[in-house]
Simulated scan of single mutants.
Amino acid sequence: MSPGSAETEARLEQLRDNLGGVHARIARGCAEAGRDPAGVTLVVVTKYFPASDVLLLHRLGVRHFGENRDQEAGEKFREVRQALSDAGRPELTLHFIGQLQTNKAAHVAGYADVVESVDRGKLVTALAKGAHAVDRPLQVLLQVSLDGATTRGGVLPENAPSLADAVAAQGLLDLRGVMAVAPLGADPDEAFARLREVADGIRARYPQADWISAGMSGDLEAGLRHGATHLRVGTAILGSRPSLL
């Protein structure tokens, strides 16, 4: 889509409407939970969507973006950052939110600002090595498994404190809190209440680790009820995943 084209303007208005709807849901959810919406960061998940959508969302005021595939994210956000830099509007925070292979960690540490999926000691070591290679600090969240399984990523709640210690021991890794996905078919309120318990325990040891990334398009209200500071929303803003990507 070329800037200023009818197609671009139509997409911009679609994103504006969808973004407004999500912000309204956040405002209602915060009101019901007795919270200030200013304390909630919306991370728009742009995986499978083109750089042009990222740039349109940036025009609409979005500054936090989420990706979960290394190759796609690295290429897309090089293009995005260059375009924003050329326009004199470089402000952007990229969250890597997907399960991350150890052999790709150093590469991700070179371009992501936040990694939300830290779930094992080997990954901590690999991310720290990557951060030191580019002399660039990296904010990290511990991904917590809320269903007792780790095959889909996530540290078990009882092992989260020791993993937090491992992150805190690394010079360029900044432990900011926890992240989780509500298990499929589970009550998100129960899941996020458990996450809040884990978050509280880690924050008691590391006061700066006060982020809770919980809640997506279908359950963001439950996340807000249980202290989510960050919401990861894709479909409700961008629509269905493109069929050709």
Rank of each mutant, 00 (worst) to 15 (best):
V62K: 07
V62D: 03
R63S: 06
F65R: 03
G66W: 00
R69Q: 08
R69P: 02
D70E: 15
Q71W: 04
Q71F: 05
A73L: 08
E75F: 14
E75R: 15
K76N: 06
F77P: 02
R78N: 12
R81K: 14
R81M: 11
R81F: 12
A87K: 09
A87V: 07
G88E: 02
R89S: 14
E91M: 09
E91P: 05
L92Q: 07
L92V: 11
T93H: 09
L94K: 01
I97N: 01
I97W: 00
L100D: 00
L100F: 05
L100C: 06
L100G: 00
Q101F: 11
N103K: 13
N103Q: 13
N103H: 13
A105S: 05
A106V: 05
H107I: 10
H107C: 11
V108A: 05
G110K: 05
Y111N: 09
Y111H: 11
A112C: 08
A112L: 04
A112M: 04
D113L: 11
D113Q: 11
D113R: 10
V114L: 07
V115P: 00
V115I: 03
V115M: 01
S117N: 08
R120G: 09
K122P: 05
L123C: 06
L123D: 00
L123K: 01
V124M: 06
V124N: 01
A126K: 00
L127V: 07
L127Q: 03
K129C: 09
G130R: 01
G130P: 02
G130Q: 02
A131C: 10
A131E: 01
H132G: 12
A133Q: 12
A133L: 13
V134F: 10
D135R: 14
D135I: 11
R136K: 15
P137A: 14
L138T: 00
Q139H: 15
Q139R: 15
Q139D: 13
L141G: 08
V144E: 02
L146K: 05
L146Y: 04
L146W: 04
L146F: 08
L146I: 07
G148Q: 10
G148T: 10
A149N: 11
T150I: 10
R152N: 12
R152H: 13
G153H: 08
G153C: 13
G153S: 12
L156D: 00
L156M: 09
P157H: 06
P157M: 08
E158V: 15
E158A: 15
N159V: 10
N159E: 14
N159W: 12
A160G: 07
P161C: 14
S162Q: 14
S162C: 12
A164T: 02
A164R: 00
D165G: 13
D165S: 14
D165V: 12
A166N: 02
A166S: 13
A166Y: 05
V167C: 09
A168R: 04
A168W: 03
A169K: 09
Q170V: 08
Q170K: 15
G171M: 15
L172R: 14
L172Q: 07
L172M: 13
L173C: 12
L173M: 11
G177L: 06
G177K: 04
V178S: 02
M179W: 08
A180I: 02
V181D: 01
V181G: 03
A182N: 03
A182D: 02
P183R: 06
L184I: 12
L184Y: 10
